[in-house]
């Protein structure tokens, strides 16, 4: 095994532990971290068994195996960014609904407070 492969493996495993620790501390939600864990594991496998890359490259008709790596990394990034955009849209819609509910409830509370005060005053 080459030196570079070992360094890469160490970095990958450290990243994996870092992510797992963040999930453990609940700073990262498992649901959103899943994609990252998956990609780290896949890259780790490719790092340990580079022959996989050659097989895929041959299948796709890509001359240089490293280009396969770039292609896959690029596709993964685009998909992930798109998923994040969808998530942001959903979150902003939820924030809007929550804020509106807060405003409406606050007004309702004030109205009820006034009614209670008026009732007490009459007693």
């Amino acid at each position: 095994m080459e030196k570079l492969q070992i360094i890469a493996a160490v970095i990958l495993i450290a990243s994996l532990l870092f992510i797992i620790n963040m999930i453990r501390k609940r700073t990262l939600e498992l649901k959103y971290a899943l994609a990252w864990i998956l990609v780290l594991v896949v890259v780790l496998i490719v790092d340990l068994v580079p022959a996989i890359l050659n097989v895929i490259s041959y299948g796709f008709g890509i001359a240089t195996p490293v280009n396969t790596l770039f292609l896959l990394a690029f596709c993964f990034s685009i998909v992930l960014i798109f998923i994040l955009t969808v998530t942001v849209s959903r979150l902003s819609d939820r924030i809007r609904q929550l804020s509106q509910a807060v405003a409406l409830n606050e007004a309702r509370i004030e109205e009820l407070e006034r009614a209670v005060k008026a009732a007490e005053w009459r007693k």
Binding site: I95, S99, A103, L104, E106, A107
Partner: peptide
Amino acid sequence: YPVLNLPVNLGIGGAVQTGYRY
């Protein structure tokens, strides 16, 4: 004045819609 007080800035659409919900 009766107020609907939004806790975060929603922009004109979100504000007007709050009024319609009310």
